[in-house]
Write a protein that binds this DNA or RNA. Structure first.
Lengths: 385, 385
DNA sequence: CAGATCAATGCAACCGGTTACATGAGATGC
DNA sequence: GCATCTCATGTAACCGGTTGCATTGATCTG
C-alpha cells in the first residue's frame, strides 16, 4: 500500500480550538474523544451577541439586523460551528428522524424496503434510524423502547408477532405505521401486500393453465405473509378444484427448503404437475433440484413463485411469479407516516393494500409454448379488476 | 381476480384493547399528538423521591436502598415510563448510535454492508443512523453535518469523492472509519477491498486459461473500485501479455452496460476470446446478449465478473467471479469503529484490506470441461499468496 | 455519649440548544 | 417635546435527563 505524505488539515484547527480552552497544556495526538466542538455560546461570544441572537441569525428567523447576522455567520464559519442536532431536538421536540424496525436485514427484500422509505424520507429531510429485532419478540420490545426520544415516528414490520403482544410494546404517543401487517385489531395504519389474493390468483392461473395437481411449498409457520399465501392457495383449490385435496409441503423461505420439497416430491412420487412456492427463493431451489433429478420444468411440472426477486428473471427458464413492488411498500408507508406527523388522523381504515401482479414467464410455459401462456395469463389478469 | 369475502379478525380484539385503557369514559379515538409521555420528574413524584434518586434507581447505580428502588420501579411500571434517549445522550455525551453514510441504497451490495455493520453494532447495543448522500458531494457534506450530536462515530463510504474534498467535510472530533476507500492521505482508518489485486488475479487466470485477447468492461470513470479494477487488468495484461494491447469498453456497473458492451463486441468484430467485466451485473448482461447473438459462453468466449452477487451462482452457465465478502466489509469497519470509540488510536496504517477470492464457475470452463478449469484456477489461487 | 464515618438521598448545575418575555433605543405621531 | 409604537437584542427558563456536592440521619468508635 502506498503512503502519500501531505499535510493533514487537522492540526491548525486543533490548535485554534485548544487555545480557546483554559488548559492549553499538552497537545494530544488525536482529537477524538475530546469533543471540543464549538457550541452556540462560543459563536455568540465570538460575534459579541447573546445566544438568543446567535440562534436566530443561524436559523434565519426575522428580527436580526444585517450586520448582526453577518457577524454571527462569520463566527460560525470561523469556529466551524455545526448545530448539535441532539440538543436542538430536545427543545423542538422534533428529531427529524424516523425509526425503522425490521425483523432482520437479509436479502434484497429489506434493502428494497429501506430504499423506498429513504426515497420519501430524504425528500422531507428526514433521517432513518435502523432498528433490528433479530427475530425475537423480546428484542422487538427493546428496539421500540430505545426509539423513544430519538424519533418522531415509527415504521415497524413485525411479521411473526401476534397483534395482542405487539400492542403492549407500542408507545401510543408515537405515530406508527405497520409494514406488511394488517393491523386492524390495533387500529394502526398499515401497508400490506395482498398475499391472499395474490396466491389465490396464482393458484387459479396454474389450474387454468391445465395443472391437475398443484402442490404448495409453504413458508415459515408463524409468518403472516406465508400464512396468507397458504390460505389463498387452499381457498383457490377448494373453490376451483374441489375434488382434489390440496397438498402442502413445509418450508421456511430458504432455497434449501425448496430443494428439500423437490426431493420429497421426487421420492414421494407425488402426482404433482405444478408447484407453487410461497416465495421465489424456494421456487428457485425446487427448480434446481428437479433439474438435477432429470425432471423438466415446465414440460413435466410447472413452477411458480412469489415476490419477483431479481433472480427470477435470470434463471432459465425464467420464473413465473407474483410481482410485489417492494420499494412501494416502503415509500407508501413513509408517506402515510408523514401525513400522520402532519397531524392527520389515520387508523387501520387507512390501511393500504398493494396488489401483486402476475408475471408469467418460462416456468409455467407448457408444451404449447411461452407466448400462448403469457397471453392467457395476462388475459386472466385483465379480467380481475 | 376473484374477491372472496372472508372474515377479518378485527373488531373483537380492538374492543379488548380499548377496555384495557384507564379512562373508559370518553375514549379518545387517537392518542397521538398528545405527547403525554411520563418523564423522570413524574416518576420521582409518584415514588416520593427526588429525580436524582429515581435516576439512580432506574440505572441500577449503587447507593439506593431496596425499598426505595422498588418504589421507583413500581412508579416506572405504573406510569409506563421509558427514558428519553435524546435527553440522556445530551448529558452523557454519548448517543449509542453510529452514523452510516452510503452513496446510495441500491442492490444487494448495500444491504449486505448494512447487515455486516448491524451484526457487530447490535452486539454492542449500538444503533444505526442511516444517511444517504444520493450521489452528490454537496449532499455528503450535509449528511455528515447533520450527524453532529446524533452519533458517536461515523462509517462513511464516499466512492466518487476526492480525499481533499472529503477532508473539508469531516469533523475531526468524530471517530470515523471509511468504507471501501483507501484513505491514507487523510490518515483515517479504513476497510477496503483489494480490487487491484483481485482484477490482476482474474486477468491472469483468464490468460492462463488460454485466452489470447481479454476485453475489459470498465465501471464508472470516477468510481474508485472501478478504476482500481481497471488498473489491475491493465497491469496484468502489460506484464503477462505484453504483445497484446488491452481493450477496454466503457460501462457503468449496470446490466445494460454489459449488454451494450456485448453488442459492441459483436458488431465491432473484436477478436476477443474472453471478457472480464468490472462487476457481475455487467457480466450477466453481457452473457445474455452474447447468447442472443448465438455466441456460446464459454465455448466461443469466456466471461468473468467481480463481486459474486447471489445471481452469479444461478445463471447458466454459472459466472466465474472474484468473491467479495461484502458483509465482512461492514462488520470489519464497525469493529474498527468500536475500537476507536474505546479510545484506541487508529490511523490509516490500521487500514484493513480484504482480499477477494477467485470463484471458478461455468463461464470460464472451456471445451476441456469445468472440473479441469476449476482445478487449474484453484491451483493458481493457491500459489498467489 | 460526643465525635467521626458512611451510606442514602436531595439540591442544583449542567448538556446545547430554543423561545417567551423583558428591555431599551430609535422612529413616529400629536 | 412627550407619549407611543416598533423592533433588535438580551435574560432566563425551559426540554429531560445525569451527576458532583451538600445534607442528613444512622451506625461506629473510643
Amino acid at each position: 500500500m502506498v503512503r502519500l505524505s501531505h499535510e493533514v488539515p487537522t492540526n491548525d484547527l486543533a490548535a485554534n480550538l485548544c487555545n480557546r480552552l483554559p488548559s492549553a497544556a499538552s497537545a494530544p495526538l488525536r482529537l477524538w474523544g475530546m469533543g471540543v466542538m464549538a457550541t452556540l455560546r462560543d459563536v455568540a461570544r465570538e460575534a459579541g451577541v447573546s445566544v438568543a441572537t446567535a440562534s436566530r441569525a443561524i436559523n434565519g428567523l426575522g428580527n436580526v439586523t444585517g450586520p448582526t447576522r453577518d457577524a454571527v455567520l462569520a463566527a460560525v464559519k470561523k469556529l466551524n460551528f455545526v448545530p448539535h442536532s441532539g440538543a436542538r431536538s430536545l427543545t423542538r421536540r422534533k428529531t427529524d428522524t424516523i425509526g425503522v424496525i425490521l425483523p432482520d436485514l437479509f436479502g434484497e427484500f429489506f434493502s428494497e424496503i429501506i430504499r423506498g422509505i429513504d426515497l420519501v424520507a430524504h425528500e422531507s429531510g428526514m433521517h432513518l434510524l435502523l432498528g433490528n429485532m433479530h427475530g425475537s419478540a423480546h428484542e422487538t420490545a427493546a428496539a421500540v423502547a430505545s426509539m423513544r426520544g430519538r424519533v418522531d415516528g415509527l415504521l415497524l414490520m413485525p411479521p411473526d408477532m401476534k397483534p395482542e403482544l405487539l400492542a403492549g410494546h407500542l408507545d401510543p404517543a408515537l405515530p406508527t405505521v405497520l409494514l406488511n401487517y394488517d393491523a386492524s385489531p390495533l387500529d394502526l395504519p398499515f401497508v400490506a401486500v395482498d398475499n391472499y389474493h395474490g396466491a389465490y390468483a396464482m393458484t387459479e392461473a396454474l389450474l387454468d393453465r391445465g395443472a391437475r395437481q398443484v402442490v404448495h411449498i409453504a413458508g415459515p409457520k408463524h409468518n403472516r405473509d406465508a400464512r396468507d399465501r397458504q390460505r389463498g392457495f387452499v381457498d383457490a383449490m377448494a373453490r376451483i378444484a374441489k375434488e382434489r385435496s390440496p397438498v402442502i409441503l413445509p418450508g421456511d423461505f430458504s432455497e434449501e427448503a425448496g430443494q428439500e420439497a423437490a426431493r420429497l416430491l421426487i421420492q414421494g412420487q407425488l402426482p404433482a404437475d405444478a408447484v407453487f412456492a410461497s416465495n421465489d427463493l424456494m421456487a428457485v431451489g425446487c427448480i434446481q433440484q428437479l433439474g438435477e433429478a432429470g425432471i423438466s420444468v415446465p414440460r413435466d411440472v410447472m413452477v411458480a413463485g412469489f415476490d419477483d426477486i431479481p433472480l427470477s428473471r435470470h434463471i432459465s427458464p425464467a420464473l413465473t411469479t407474483m410481482q410485489v413492488k417492494i420499494d412501494r411498500l416502503g415509500s407508501t408507508a413513509m408517506m402515510m407516516l408523514l401525513r400522520l406527523l402532519r397531524g392527520e388522523t389515520l387508523g387501520a381504515a387507512s390501511g393500504n393494500v398493494l396488489t401483486p401482479t402476475l408475471i408469467a414467464r418460462g416456468t409455467t410455459a407448457g408444451p404449447v409454448g411461452l407466448a400462448a401462456v403469457t397471453k392467457a395469463l395476462a388475459a386472466k389478469e385483465q379480467e380481475a379488476p
